[in-house]
């Protein structure tokens, strides 16, 4: 508590190592700064050195405000993938579009990116094997077959924008498909809420390897 008695303790001078002190605090500063500013370059460097095995089978993509975990994936053409997208946010709804290039909308402040110009899912057969807490699901030109009950949230007519399942907070969906023969670098992103999630950093990259 907040009171003190006269000090009875002996004060003894015991020296300690200046070198240990400097090296220790210096090393921690470097680690702290590295963790703050260099995590992305470090992750990229590690990836380029060690490479990354293509993922297949059941995989999970977590959505948060405003990021994906993971934000880098490697797939291989022809592999069977069962991708569960889970929105872990307690407040925001999120989608996941995959594509390349951007459609844009000019405004006086700046040009806004509204969605991908090229839709990865075009012509791809996709099965919805589980779904829960879905806000809406635009299928665009994908070939959808569904194990779960067809529900009002499934928008199958093209013209509503790119292929994108949009999950309510806590919602999740599982999509099963075979990676189509579209090798190369693809991006995934969330464009909801006035296209701001993409700006806020909700993006990722898929490297699709040829078979």
């Amino acid at each position: 508590m907040a009171n003190e008695e006269p000090q009875e303790k002996k004060k003894v001078e015991v020296d300690w190592s200046r070198r240990q002190f400097l090296i220790g605090t210096g090393a921690l500063t470097v680690v702290g700064l590295g963790a703050m500013f260099l995590n992305e370059p470090v992750a990229a460097a590690v990836r380029s050195v060690f490479g990354q095995q293509p993922e297949s089978g059941p995989i999970t993509v977590l959505q948060g405000d405003y990021f994906y975990i993971p934000n880098y994936m490697t797939w291989r053409v022809g592999d069977q993938i069962s991708m569960t997208i889970h929105n872990t946010s307690t407040t925001h709804f999120h989608e996941m579009q995959i594509g390349r290039g951007f459609n844009t909308m000019p405004t006086a402040l700046q040009t806004i990116r509204t969605q991908f110009a090229e839709d990865f899912w075009k012509g791809v057969p996709v099965t919805i094997t589980a779904a829960q807490g879905i806000d809406n699901f635009v299928t665009n030109e994908a070939k959808i077959s569904s194990d779960v009950h067809p529900t009002p949230w499934l928008l199958t007519q093209p013209g509503n924008g790119g292929f994108s399942p949009t999950m309510k907070p806590g919602g999740q969906i599982t999509l099963s498909f075979t990676v189509p023969n579209k090798p190369g670098i693809w991006h995934y992103a969330c464009f909801v809420q006035g296209y701001m999630h993409w700006l806020a950093g909700m993006r990722g990259t898929i490297n699709i390897l040829p078979a």
């Binding site: 006035g194 701001m196 700006l199």
Partner: peptide, 11 residues
């Protein structure tokens, strides 16, 4: 009001 705050405007 979040990341979109600077973009929240209208003419």
């Amino acid at each position: 009001c979040g990341p979109g705050h600077p973009y929240m405007w209208a003419p």
